[in-house]
């Protein structure tokens, strides 16, 4: 008889390329720091407080939910931390603690866990949470009022409010280079455009986000903004302005690309991104809201299951 040595028995394949969810999370986390650190430098300790509180409570909410629902602890995959980070990036530095904690609750518990955890959320959890906060306490997101007490060396007005209320002429004075370098007010991690772009390109190259979505989203913004400004140059600002203000870059690289709520096939990804970009500009220009990125992302999240029905036919015997 054979001896009793226990060999490991498992199913093929016996190789794996070594990828894991936690390495994706940590890469996204690190890439986001490129925008968050400059944001913190700009807004000081209050911003650091919001970011750390947001990450910490996101992790705690997930832990608590794992515990209550008796599911295996999943905070090790880093997804909760990333959600916390994304949420903080959208918030103004002056957000009160209770709003941050409520926000992470909406994001992690309502946005993700009750749908079944990672991979099952139909909407981007952080976007959903911020939208709920905005609808419930709109004052929190009045960037002009919120950041009133800061002393900046640039014009401290939320650029999207300017263009919305006073037309394209009002934002002529803003140089694109300044906007790109974060000389504008906004969410903690949403203003330093250069950092967002570098981080986004890094994530695209490493394959942690699907480049098709980001590129299509930005293309949608450009095309729509160009269309509007050609049609009425005095009222609507040009594509460059739309690209570097509000949540555009954050949305293109970090929010629209969230895995579970976006499509995976080529054509659907392109449609998804394009619709997102175009809707963003439409909401900004003709809608009632100041920024359109979050609503646009929720809408494309909603159509995602339909889009993924457009899929290549499998080849082979089963057909």
């Amino acid at each position: 008889m054979h001896n009793t040595l226990k060999l490991t028995v498992s199913h093929a394949p016996f190789w794996h390329n070594g990828s894991r969810i936690s390495s994706k999370s940590s890469n996204i986390f690190l890439a986001s720091l490129l925008a968050v650190v400059p944001g913190c430098l700009q807004y000081g300790p209050a911003a650091v407080g919001v970011v750390t509180l947001s990450i910490a409570t996101a992790i705690l909410w997930e832990l608590a939910f794992n515990f209550i629902s008796r599911r295996p602890f999943s905070i090790g995959d880093g997804n909760a931390a990333v959600i916390g980070m994304m949420l903080a990036m959208m918030l103004p530095a002056t957000t009160p603690w209770w709003a941050v904690v409520t926000g992470t609750f909406f994001a992690v518990v309502i946005g993700k866990e009750i749908f079944g955890g990672i991979g099952a959320n139909p909407f981007n959890p952080a976007v959903l949470a911020v939208t709920i906060l905005m609808v419930s306490w709109s004052g929190l997101f009045d960037f002009n009022a919120a950041l009133l007490n800061y002393d900046f060396d640039f014009m401290a007005v939320y650029p999207l409010v300017l263009s919305k209320s006073f037309g394209a002429g009002a934002v002529d004075s803003l140089s694109l280079a300044d906007l790109l370098m974060g000389k504008q007010i906004g969410g903690i991690g949403a203003t330093f455009g250069l950092g967002l772009i570098v981080g986004g390109v890094y994530l695209m190259l490493r394959g942690y986000i699907r480049w098709e979505i980001s590129i299509a989203f930005l293309a949608g913004i450009l095309v729509a903004a160009l269309g509007f400004s050609v049609a009425n140059p005095t009222q609507y600002a040009g594509p460059g302005f739309h690209l570097f203000t509000g949540y555009t870059l954050l949305g293109a690289f970090f929010l629209a690309t969230e895995d579970a709520s976006s499509p995976v096939n080529f054509i659907p990804m392109i449609i998804y991104g394009l619709i997102g970009g175009i809707l963003t500009v439409m909401i900004r220009n003709i809608g009632v809201h100041i920024d359109g990125v979050l609503y646009a992302i929720l809408i494309i999240n909603l159509v995602n299951p339909l889009l993924d029905k457009i899929r290549p036919k499998a080849i082979g015997k089963g057909v």
Partner: peptide
């Protein structure tokens, strides 16, 4: 062979891991 090692008959993608040393 030690406890917990894995022996694969066939290639790494489609082989079968065996449970007997014979």
């Amino acid at each position: 062979l030690n406890e917990g090692d894995r022996v694969i008959f066939g290639g790494p993608m489609t082989g079968v891991s065996v449970f007997r040393t014979d």
